[in-house]
Structure formats: C-alpha cells, structure tokens
Design a protein around this nucleic acid. Structure first.
Length: 302
DNA sequence: ATGGTTGCGCTGCAA
C-alpha cells in the first residue's frame, strides 16, 4: 500500500515523451518509504533530488540496488548531513558535473548544492540554492553570489537546459500565501527575484498556470499544509525550446500528504518529443492534474 | 502563543 495506487493506473504513456520531476526530499534516508512508491507510481524518466543529506557512498549503499531495479541510473553529490543533490535517469546521464564553474563556497567550505547531466538531450541541473537565512546576512550575500555564478554558466551554454530544484526564491507575490507577512524576509526580495529573472528562462509551471494558487513548500509547523499556507520555491526553469514542448506541469500535492512527508512536494513536468523527432501525428496534451482552487481545507481541530 | 515541526545527531542549529 503506497498511497498512490488509485492514480497510478491511468498515466498515458508516450513512446517519446519525457517526464522530469524535482523534489526536495529533506533527507532521502528518512524519505525512502515515500520516495520509492512515488517513483513506481509517477514513473518519471528524470528525477532531480535535493537535500539528500548523505555522502555519495551512503546514497549508493541506501538506494543503488533499488534504483537499478526501477531502471534508473543516477549521479549523486553529497558530503553527508546537509545539502546533497542527485539526478536519477532512465535515459542515461552524460557529462555529469558536480558543482558548476565559479560556484561560491560558504565560510570557506564547498557545499554540495549542484549537479548536472545531459539526459535525453536536455542539460538537466539539480539545484539546492542557499537559503539566505536573514536579509543582509553573510548567507544572503552567498545566496546572491551563488545565483550570479549560476547565471553566468547558464548564459554561456547554448544547449537546451532545465534548471530544476529548490531555488529558495518565490518568483512573484503570487507565489507566497501572504506577501505582506514576507516583507523584509528572504525568498521574496527584489534582489533574489531579479536573479531568478536574470536566467532568462521560462518558469514552466507558472506559464501553464498563470492565475492559479500553486505552492510547492509548506512549513511543517502549525498545520500550514492543511491550510494551504505555502510558497512556490521549487521551480523548473527551461529554455524556450524546452518550454514549448511542455505538455503538463504541476505540483504533486499527494506526496505532501499522509505520514512522513517531506515539507516540499515534487514538481512534475511532461515534455513532448523534440520537434525534430519523427513522432508521427500530433496529439492533444493530456489534461493537467494540478488541483484548482485553494486546496484542501481540513477541520482545524484534530 | 513573538509560537509551531522535522532532521541531524547528541547540542543546538538549520530550515
């Protein structure tokens, strides 16, 4: 019983479509009982994970066999305890790169926050952007410098690209439950939002749902998820050509429910075949299963 | 209520 069975049977399969997902799992060791059933149900071809909180060796020992059994190759970059990112792929992983050129360190220490690989012809980055902690702090400066350095790398790469991960920035006021309450805090400042815009990429979930209330993160505390008081900080940012192939783009709220969830939900993006592929007749995109409206509201008392 | 919870790892810090 994995909690996804009711929705697992009907996923349309395409000979050439690609499903890419990104999920901050907040400790992959703790999240194994949620991650493996989710992979089996959602069947993504490419998965970007953040906050694995494991060393490379520990990740392989924990999940190597299970992922191979599900058909995934993977590349992980982690030092244990904090941070840690990975890419899982059923399409192969070419030219795997840990970190990126010019990636800043914090307090003299390299942090495992970025890994990239070419999967199915797209340069896929799994990113865990520094939190920033307090506006004006050393960590906030680190966050801005980190985003600047990443933008330089992306701008120099002409390939089809997808930046996937926990960006720790809500791109607009529509991406937080109460903009007024965030004034003066990280994740919503003009400096941070300017860095996200400077990538010059398409925020594919927002492009597909321009007016919807869509969040990807809800604090564990105070029943925030059940009141749908969240933020949209987990993003898939792609080059225009990739964005033009998006058939569906949504947040998998189901994965935030039930026992032992991460505080983040996965973001799932389905791409049609590349336009130069021999794909036969064009078919309409499947309906997008993102939840409309304000989300589930449960009784306030237990 | 200036709070709340979870994870890491063993003391408080990070988120």
């Amino acid at each position: 019983m994995n909690g996804y069975a009711a929705s697992s049977a009907g996923r349309p399969t395409s000979l050439s479509g690609v499903r890419i997902a990104t999920w901050n799992v907040n400790s992959v060791k703790t999240r194994v009982p949620r991650l493996l059933p989710w992979l089996e149900d959602r069947q993504p071809e490419v998965v970007c994970l953040q906050e694995t909180k494991l060393s490379d060796e520990a990740f392989t020992a924990l999940l190597g066999e299970a992922l191979a059994g599900l058909g995934y190759g993977f590349a992980h970059h982690g030092h244990g305890q904090w941070n840690g990112v990975a890419i899982l792929s059923r399409l192969g992983l070419d030219d795997v790169e840990r970190d990126f050129p010019g990636q800043p360190e914090f307090a003299g220490a390299a942090e495992a926050r970025a890994i990239s690989a070419t999967c199915g012809g797209v340069r896929v980055h799994s990113l865990y952007v520094p939190n920033g902690r307090e506006v004006g702090s050393d960590h906030f400066g680190y966050k801005l410098a980190w985003l600047d350095a990443l933008a330089a790398v992306v701008g120099a790469d002409a390939a089809d690209v997808a930046l996937c991960g926990d960006m720790n920035v809500a791109p607009t006021d529509a991406d937080v439950f109460d903009p007024a309450s965030f004034l003066g805090h990280t994740h919503v400042t003009a400096e941070e939002r300017g860095r996200i815009a400077a990538f010059g990429l398409v925020d594919v979930v927002r492009e597909r749902w321009p007016q919807e209330r869509v969040f990807s993160y809800w604090d564990y505390r105070a029943g925030m998820f059940h009141q749908d008081l969240g933020m949209r900080i987990d993003l898939v940012l792609t080059s225009r050509g990739v964005a033009d192939r998006v058939a569906a783009a949504w947040v998998d709220r189901q994965a935030r429910k039930g026992s032992g969830p991460s505080d983040h939900a996965p973001v799932i993006v389905d791409l049609d075949a590349a336009p130069d592929g021999d794909i036969g007749p064009v078919v309409p995109p499947p309906s997008n299963p993102v939840r409309r409206g304000r989300g589930v509201r449960l009784p306030q008392s237990p």
